Computed example of a mutant assay.
Amino acid sequence: MTPELIAQALKSLRQQKPLVVNITNYVVMNNTANALLAVGASPIMAHSREEMADMMSFAGALVINIGTLDKVWVERMAFAIEQANANQTPIVLDPVGCGATTFRTETSRRFAALAKRLIIRGNASEIIALAGEKSQGKGVDAQDSSQAALSAAKALVDEYQANVVVSGEVDYIVTKDSVFSLSNGHSMMPQVTGTGCSLSALTGAFAAIGETTGLVAAAVMGVAGEIAGQEAKGPGSLQTALLDALFALDDDTLLARLKLAQL
């Protein structure tokens, strides 16, 4: 994956405007829907079991985010994953707070095992916990470095035949055949709730057009976050600046700012 191919994928997404179904947490529904709209995709924040079979018959991707989990939502999410599998629809799993409680950890592993065309996007502590290793998470926040999660990410690739995106100061994108690092973003981004969740949603948007590594979404979000962080006065204005940066991002800016390396 070259920088030029990343820029081309962004252009293709804006042309195709894929529909992304999000079963996501109450905290970030507005954030993630607006991020998808800003980048050029079409979001729907559906969670009803009664319409999920229909949804998965025409959706481009399914994003599952367990941030505000309960037993009712677990079964709805599992059903949605089954319907996505039946339609060969790519699935993004955001295992929010995996490792914080047994319920979250077991649910994350259940979904990862159930999903077929899977991309896992989480912070370092979530990825480590999902792989069954000891993490240093604090609730939904990561206390581990993204580099410390690399071995866990590789284990998840093998166990679930998934691609894995580890978010952090440096993002790592791990597939069966490659490992990439991205060093964009801004130190203020963790101070705004939902930036990682928005990345998961963008990962679904690019998966819907066939880019299932997670690399392009991480690149776009990282560069947009870097621009937004340089313009914002604080976390409040960062949210607005991030949407504006996603909307305005063009090929030249993306190529000029991208800090991509293959390991």
Rank of each mutant, 00 (worst) to 15 (best):
M45Q: 00
I227E: 04
K259T: 06
K71L: 14
G210C: 14
Y172Q: 01
A7I: 07
R109D: 04
Q143M: 15
L130K: 01
A207Q: 05
T68I: 13
R117Y: 07
A224W: 03
A124W: 00
N34H: 00
I81Y: 06
V164P: 05
C98P: 07
S237Q: 08
S146D: 00
L182H: 00
G99N: 00
A9I: 02
L215Y: 10
I44G: 07
I127K: 08
V165R: 07
F111M: 13
Q143V: 13
A241F: 02
T193S: 12
G236R: 08
A115L: 09
Y172M: 15
L199R: 05
S145Q: 12
A113E: 12
A100N: 06
F58V: 05
M45F: 01
M29V: 08
G139S: 11
Q161G: 11
A80H: 02
S181K: 12
Y172T: 07
Q161A: 09
T105M: 05
S198G: 15
E4F: 14
Q147A: 15
M52S: 04
L246I: 06
G229H: 02
I44Q: 04
L5N: 12
F206A: 03
T24R: 01
G194Y: 00
S146P: 11
N87H: 15
R109I: 03
S48R: 13
L243I: 09
S108C: 04
E133L: 12
T107E: 00
M189E: 01
V216K: 08
A142F: 01
V20R: 02
A217C: 07
T2K: 15
M221Y: 11
L258R: 07
N65H: 09
A38K: 00
A100K: 02
A80G: 06
A33N: 03
A115E: 00
R76H: 14
A162M: 09
K134S: 10
S57G: 15
D158S: 14
D158F: 10
M221E: 10
D177W: 08
L19P: 03
S183K: 09
L13M: 08
E231R: 15
L202C: 10
G196L: 06
K11P: 05
N123H: 06
V166D: 00
T102S: 15
V216W: 01
V223Q: 07
G40M: 06
M56C: 04
N31G: 07
P235Q: 05
I209K: 04
E231F: 13
A261R: 15
S167H: 03
A41E: 02
S237L: 10
A218N: 13
A205L: 08
A207S: 06
F247L: 08
F79Y: 11
N22K: 11
V21Y: 05
V92E: 01
V140R: 01
K154S: 12
A201S: 10
A61S: 13
A155V: 11
S146Q: 03
C98H: 09
L62P: 06
M1K: 09
C98W: 06
A115W: 03
